Computed example of a mutant assay.
Amino acid sequence: MAANSYSEAFNELLEELASIEHERWSHWQSYMHSKAVRQPDGSLLLPADLVEKWERQIATDYANLSEKEKESDREQVRKYLPSIARHMDKSKL
Results as ranks from 00 to 15, higher is better:
M1V: 11
F10K: 05
F10Y: 15
N11Y: 14
L13E: 09
L13Q: 10
L13A: 05
L17A: 02
I20S: 07
E21M: 11
H22A: 02
E23R: 03
R24V: 15
R24D: 15
H27Q: 14
W28E: 12
S30Q: 04
M32I: 14
S34L: 04
S34I: 10
A36R: 01
R38N: 11
R38D: 02
Q39K: 15
Q39P: 09
D41L: 06
L44C: 00
L45D: 05
L45T: 06
L46G: 10
A48F: 09
A48L: 10
A48R: 14
D49C: 09
V51Y: 01
K53A: 11
K53T: 10
Q57L: 06
I58E: 13
D61W: 14
A63Y: 05
N64P: 00
N64Q: 05
N64A: 07
S66V: 02
S66K: 14
E67K: 03
E67I: 01
E67T: 07
E69R: 05
K70P: 04
D73I: 04
D73E: 06
R74L: 01
R74D: 02
E75T: 07
E75D: 06
Q76C: 03
V77R: 13
R78G: 03
R78H: 12
K79A: 02
Y80V: 03
L81Q: 07
L81A: 12
I84P: 01
A85P: 00
R86V: 07
M88H: 02
S91Q: 12
K92W: 11
K92C: 06
L93Q: 13
